[in-house]
């Protein structure tokens, strides 16, 4: 083998390591193990990937799967928006005002440690089995995490850039857009990331306990029927949606907003 060939091989190796190849391989491997396990078990309690995919297809075309997915996704989006908005405002205020921070800190710790289930039950008991109670309960579970993250962000704001903005008399809006928000971007990204995953898990519990539709309701229903194919089908479909959001929405946005980073001098 010549030197040039060897280098060519190395380049190929690098390309394979960098591309999506490894991710695809990892998912394929999982499906294979699942398939083999299902073949060995031959049980209603562990259907193979084929059966589950078929269920997803059938339920999407003839059943309610897409509608239920849509309803759950809407609840995730609504809770996420409410939690991010309220959590960011409180977090930023606490990061900038030490007195407010001291006043709210004990409550922050209380809500951080209050089990999601308690909040959900109390929300349903006090506000009734309705959409607002459901979304509010989910948001309330997420708000403390957003507050903690954004409080750190507010504390880490660069006072030097703040002085620059003041010295050059930037308008409040211009300062927010050009100086403050870009500094908070990593904290927003971190809060959103952990937010979406936490929220969709809690949304299912909320649906299970007190909603007549959505993925959580369907899971509950199929649990009572012991229909594991349906449970896996709904789970897989929703995971696919979340993966699509991560790869098609979250990551491109993040790449765009951090394009100025890590450029060599």
């Amino acid at each position: 083998m010549t030197v040039i060939d060897a280098r060519h091989d190395a380049v190929w190796g690098m390309r394979i390591l960098r591309g999506p190849f490894i991710s695809v391989l990892s998912v394929g491997g999982f499906l294979l193990i699942w398939f083999i396990a299902a073949e060995i078990a031959q049980s209603r309690l562990l259907p193979g990937p084929g059966a589950v995919l078929e269920y997803i297809y059938r339920e999407s075309v003839y059943g309610d799967l897409l509608t239920e997915l849509g309803i759950t996704l809407w609840r995730v989006a609504a809770s996420f928006a409410v939690a991010m908005l309220i959590g960011s405002v409180i977090g930023l205020a606490m990061g900038q005002m030490p007195a407010l921070d001291r006043a709210l800190d004990p409550w922050l710790i209380v809500f951080l440690n209050l089990p999601a289930l308690v909040i959900i039950i109390l929300a349903y008991v006090w506000f009734g089995l309705n959409e607002a109670a459901a979304i509010g309960a989910v948001a309330l579970n997420k708000i403390p995490n957003v507050v903690v993250t954004l409080r750190e962000g507010a504390r880490a704001l660069d006072p030097g850039l703040d002085e620059m903005a003041r010295a050059y008399r930037l308008s409040p809006l211009s300062k927010l857009r050009n100086v403050t928000l870009p500094q908070l971007q990593p904290y927003f990204a971190a809060a959103s990331r952990s937010g979406i995953s936490l929220i969709w898990k809690i949304v299912l519990v909320v649906e299970l306990l007190g909603r007549p539709n959505g993925v959580g309701f369907e899971l509950h229903l199929n649990f009572q029927l012991f229909n594991v194919t349906a449970i896996l089908g709904y789970t897989l479909a929703f995971v696919a949606v979340m993966l699509a959001i991560e790869y098609l929405l979250v990551q491109p946005i993040e790449r765009h907003s951090t394009r100025w980073r890590n450029k060599p001098v």
């Binding site: 030097g160 850039l161 002085e163 620059m164 050009n178 100086v179 870009p182 971007q185 907003s257 100025w260 980073r261």
Partner: peptide
Amino acid sequence: FQEPRLLPW
């Protein structure tokens, strides 16, 4: 300023 204080983004 003593440092450039440019907006990196």
